[in-house]
Design a protein around this nucleic acid. Structure first.
Lengths: 396, 396
DNA sequence: GGAGATTAGTAAGATAGTATTACTAACAAT
DNA sequence: ATTGTTAGTAATACTATCTTACTAATCTCC
């Protein structure tokens, strides 16, 4: 075990700096002299630590192109070993489950998809089988597991709540269950939150980490927020329940409409049907589905544009609240309704009339895989946290 | 200067652990043997560091009660020197400026209040004079300055924006200005945000750090949020602008009411006047002020209860949005309207009908001093960050 | 082809800080 | 007075670092 105060701590800290420098430089490789320059450590110190990392299997000398064209003695270029750590990532959706195995850099080296089972337990059994199958042939197994669930996960009780689409979560200690099957760090998170992380990870090049929101508009409406690079969960873990947001104050007697009553996929279909009954003109059938409705939007269909306008107006109002309260820099829309650029444009148009400096609104580009990619980004963090300690600690 | 990789770093880290242990134990004093037990460091290491801290003036042997009643050799008990560091804190309000000097533990050792001048520059000059006056007799001057301003502070431009009540901020580089006058770390922050920190600090015993909101309802309506112990500012620094929140979607042609149109102090007075004109019954004059209106609320005055109900309903709707988006654990109301328990109770009653699990709502107990106390908590953080480095770095 | 320049990496010794062990100091209880 | 307990110090060893000086390997220029 690593000491926490003596010079062993110093070794860990300096080891972390070296690993950080190598991750920052990825995919370029670095010589030990280069690492010394980048970290400020002395060359002998770097050599000693790199030797330890190499014998622990985290680093190796790159085979190809042993430098060329430069003056001076050619360097031995080191690179991180991609396969030094693996993690299992999964997104348990209402209809499908995505499973993957990610390497040290978050590349998915194996993937699989299966249909969600009748209840949570069967689905999880299937998930466990699939992941051991995907891990076959990977030496060392996995060191981290991150699972997205279609409900609110409460770490203090180790329970998934409000997973309405998938029964059987009520008395299932999910983290404990996973710990029994995987000898790894376990992380469970709401799928919408993971999707927010995933969407952010996919645009991080052009964008700062801070204050990003991803709104999913499909069967239900949910939101994940990333604040300063970390997920924001709120005091009771239920931040971002946008669907229940009231569109106006309830008058005495009447119950007010919620955002979900107007802008979710089922509501849009229902309201379209009612618009037809009320006599609005449309080429479509009264029970058209969301893709059909969106397809007809371009053609200037009367009932369609009325329904979509209402949905966009409601969403714009909700987003205006979000801007005044949380002031995100960018908002990304996903889900069956939200990922449609027509919808995003309509919201954007209306939002500009409600808010002085509206944030950037974009449509999701990742689709279903957003949560899985978010799970990768969490599992990477878990692995990075323990990497150096484990690599340097095992030497006697 | 302290090395960042060599053994000097280790010394700093261990020094920090000792100081942290002493702060955590405050106001009890600790023996060196006790520090060694608490930190896991060895006794000689603790002795060496404590000796350095003592000669730097951060620690001293407590005079009184050199231990008694216990078995064994009596310990020399060490305590932090309260006056080792001082900070200047100020809250520049629209009508008054509060200035104080705080010691190492955040106790205010000097305080002063003066009327806000005609413009920012005059007020700041007055502030600088006052604080040098308050610092007279304090050896070493101040090491940190935290100033609350009635507007949005943008660090990247070093400007205070939207300070509508106090002209002259537009082309004033406030941090730079303060840096010229104080040889100390400077921090400028919105006053509502500081008030949130202050209110949180005053209840921290019973409450976790996380996800606390303070809503100020007075001339305007603003909110400060604390997330995980840190202020939340949003992407452009303007999170918490609750006053502009729309109470309903604007219909074509009409502009919708904002929260400030219904629940701010001026709006309440205006709407009360109109209620009288409309013929609602009241004992009060049509141009009654907020304290009078609240005083009449208990008596069941018709016009008064109509106006306050409307204000509370609007605030409850806004708070319901806040809960669904940010899910705070506790919300504290301050300001001329908000600090009134009658108002808070009314909001609470209405909120319970809008949200399934409403957070705890409370009325501010700090009043005007909230922002000043928040400034103290920021300045303490600034001082703690640099304390050990400065204390151990100055020895050759 | 050889001398010099240039960069990578290693070896040896110095330095700083910590932990361990064993000691002395100071007091209470018996 | 003796014994036991706790606080603190002294001496030494250990760990990990840095510095300095060296060797190694290549390119360039003559």
């Amino acid at each position: 075990m690593a000491e926490s105060s003596g010079s062993g701590l110093l070794r860990l800290l300096n080891g972390q700096r070296i690993v950080d420098a190598l991750f920052a430089a990825h995919p370029s490789r670095m010589s030990r002299a280069g690492i010394a320059r980048a970290t400020g450590l002395s060359k002998p110190t770097v050599s000693a630590l790199v030797a330890d990392f190499e014998s622990a299997g985290l680093l190796r000398v790159s085979e190809e192109s042993p430098s060329s064209g430069t003056i001076g003695r050619p360097a031995a270029l080191y690179e991180l070993v991609t396969s030094a750590r693996h993690s299992v990532v999964a997104d348990i959706g209402a209809t499908k489950v995505l499973v993957g195995v990610s390497d040290l850099f978050g590349e998915l080296v194996a993937e699989h998809e299966f249909t969600t089972g009748p209840d949570a337990r069967t689905t999880l059994d299937h998930l466990a089988e699939t992941s051991t199958e995907l891990l076959r042939g990977i030496a060392g197994g996995c060191q981290a597991v991150c699972v997205g669930v279609p409900g609110i996960y409460r770490p203090e009780r180790d329970r998934v709540e409000q997973a309405l689409n998938l029964p059987g979560f009520d008395d299932l200690a999910l983290s404990a269950w996973l710990s029994e099957r995987f000898k790894a760090t376990i992380y469970v998170e709401n799928d919408v939150n993971l999707a927010a992380l995933g969407e952010l990870a996919s645009i991080r090049d052009e964008q700062t980490d801070s204050d990003f929101a991803a709104i999913s508009v499909g069967t239900g409406i949910g939101m994940g927020m990333v604040v300063g690079g970390d997920l924001y969960r709120g005091g009771t873990g239920s931040a971002g329940e946008l669907g229940s947001l009231l569109l106006s104050a309830p008058q005495s007697g009447t119950t007010a409409l919620t955002l979900e009553d107007v802008a979710s996929a089922p509501s849009i279909c229902k309201r379209f049907g009612r618009a037809i009954e009320k006599g609005l003109h449309s080429k479509l059938d009264a029970n058209a589905d969301v893709p059909e409705i969106f397809a007809a939007a371009a053609a200037g269909d009367e009932a369609v544009s009325w329904v979509l306008d209402e949905a966009a107006a409601a969403m714009a109002l909700a987003v205006s609240h979000l801007c005044l309260i949380a002031d995100p820099i960018q908002i990304m829309f996903g889900g069956g309704v939200g990922a449609n650029p027509v919808f995003v444009k309509a919201v954007e148009r209306r939002l500009s009339k409600l808010v002085a400096a509206p944030p950037k609104l974009t449509a999701s580009t990742l689709g279903r895989k957003a949560a899985l990619i978010g799970a990768v980004s969490i599992s990477l963090r878990l692995i990075h946290e323990s990497l150096v300690v484990e690599m340097l600690g095992d030497q006697p």
